[in-house]
């Protein structure tokens, strides 16, 4: 399992390639990338992501370990940024590998569902008219029920 929490950008192509190259005997690699959405209308000046150093790494390791236990995976990669980001910047990525694609797809979805509401990150959106913390959605919590 590779877990990285960082402020600097990551190279999606190089990370995906590196992850895929490191796999042996795996028939599938699935990746998901989260991108900062612009706000319709007023436009997003920037997004600030705060996190809880120490707990963040532990929470991500726990989520990745749960995925490794539950599905037949070769490996899991999670990269998540914090700090100041702009619209269209990449916030985070996950990659999973498995012998058959179903495991890699399902595990990637599981990782994303848990990352949303169990990893200690908080997003604040800054616009011309001020700043607002992004509120968690009930749907994010409900998404955990299917696992």
């Amino acid at each position: 399992m590779i877990i990285r929490v960082q402020s600097e950008p990551f190279d999606l192509g190089a990370e995906t390639e590196g992850f895929a190259d490191a796999q042996q005997g795996m028939g599938a690699v699935v990746t998901f990338t989260g991108i900062v959405r612009d706000l319709p209308g007023e436009g997003l000046d920037r997004m600030e992501i705060e996190h809880y150093p120490g707990m963040t790494e532990k929470a991500l390791e726990k989520i990745a370990a749960q995925a490794m236990d539950r599905w037949d995976l070769g490996d899991v990669l999670i990269i998540h940024r914090y700090g100041n980001l702009k619209a269209d910047d990449r916030i985070m990525m996950v990659a999973t590998s498995s012998r058959h694609r179903l495991h890699a797809f399902e595990a990637a979805e599981f990782l994303m569902d848990y990352l949303k509401s169990r990893a200690p990150f908080w997003k604040k959106e800054f616009t011309q008219s001020g700043a607002e913390w992004v509120e968690a959605k009930d749907a994010d919590e409900a998404a955990l029920d299917r696992w």
């Binding site: 916030i91 985070m92 990893a119 200690p120 992004v134 509120e135």
Partner: peptide, 10 residues
């Protein structure tokens, strides 16, 4: 002990 709002990762 840490207090915070519901998390918004991903």
């Amino acid at each position: 002990v840490a207090f915070f709002p519901p998390m918004t990762g991903g």
